[in-house]
């Protein structure tokens, strides 16, 4: 993991010097931390304690196997079946399905809603209102404020006309990655903060300027699409290998070069 921070275990006492103190902003606790009044802050999971003095926030970065939906997460879901007014989607296998209303697509009305087949993938966001632990999560493929898709929507299957949204068409495949790696990929500055540069390298000079697109889901799935199936396989393998071996920047560069040479 790239970010620095002390390793904490559940129930440990956190050194008060680590708790950020900001003159104005209130302290914000992220995942894995619990506040026990009056003053104790106790970690509930094992992981790395990350603090952000600017935002006055702290949370624990950990790599679990189980995805727990939380609001505003971008995820790759799979359509299970359609009901009268919503699609039932699987976010992770063997968990309760999430609902994706027929009208939660860009420009969708009762007459022009997208027709999605069971098994099709959608890139969606968990609505801010849902996803508390007491109810099944609800998904949307459109921004509630702007009414735009912003790249969300069904991920096309060759030979079918996908509805609105990103409308990716070429061949593409989904690869499973760890949840921590998915979070790192989704960071705004994934190269600096997350320590993942593999995608940029593949598209840059190390990879010989491969053309591809990706959609990273927080639920540990990443879709890679490209005109050439060879590129999809290459990018997918590079991502999975980086994740599995926990490669640093130099390792990623070597991996990309090796894969590009192999797949030529």
């Amino acid at each position: 993991m790239a970010p620095d921070g002390p390793l904490v275990l559940p129930g440990e006492t956190i050194d008060p010097s680590l708790v950020p103190s900001h003159p104005k902003n209130p302290l914000r606790l992220g995942p894995g931390l619990r506040h026990i009044p009056p003053t104790d802050i106790v970690p509930t999971v094992a992981g790395q304690l990350i603090t952000n003095p600017v935002k006055n926030s702290m949370w624990i970065e950990y790599n679990s196997n189980r995805y727990i939906p939380s609001p505003n997460d971008l995820i790759l879901a799979q359509i299970l079946r359609s009901t009268t007014d919503a699609y039932l989607c699987l976010i992770t296998p063997y968990s309760a399905p999430a609902t994706l209303p027929h009208l939660a697509f860009e420009g969708a009305t009762k007459k022009t809603r997208p027709q999605l087949a069971p098994g099709q993938l959608v890139y969606a966001r968990i609505t801010p209102a849902s996803a508390n632990r007491h109810m099944d999560p609800e998904l949307e493929c459109v921004s509630a404020t702007t009414g735009k898709a912003d790249g969300l929507g069904p991920i096309g299957v060759v030979g079918t006309t996908s509805g609105s949204g990103s409308g990716s068409t070429g061949p593409g495949c989904v690869f499973d990655i760890s949840l921590g790696f998915a979070r790192r990929l989704l960071m705004a500055r994934s190269r600096e903060d997350g320590g993942v540069g593999v995608l940029e390298m593949l598209g840059g000079e190390e990879g010989g300027g491969l053309a591809f697109e990706t959609a990273v889901g927080r639920n540990g799935r990443v879709w890679v699409g490209s005109e050439s199936a060879r590129t999809v396989v290459l990018v997918g393998r590079a991502l999975q290998e980086t994740d599995r071996a926990g490669l640093g920047m130099e390792g990623q560069r070597r991996l990309v070069k090796k894969l590009v040479r192999e797949m030529k």
């Binding site: 799979q78 099709q120 991920i155 593409g172």
Partner: peptide, 28 residues
Amino acid sequence: MPREVDPSLNEKQFVTQALEENLRLDGR
């Protein structure tokens, strides 16, 4: 008993298509 989950349409289609191009997902 939870049922086995089928892979998505995208995956099914890609695996078959890649095999037609003599490619496997793990490069073997």
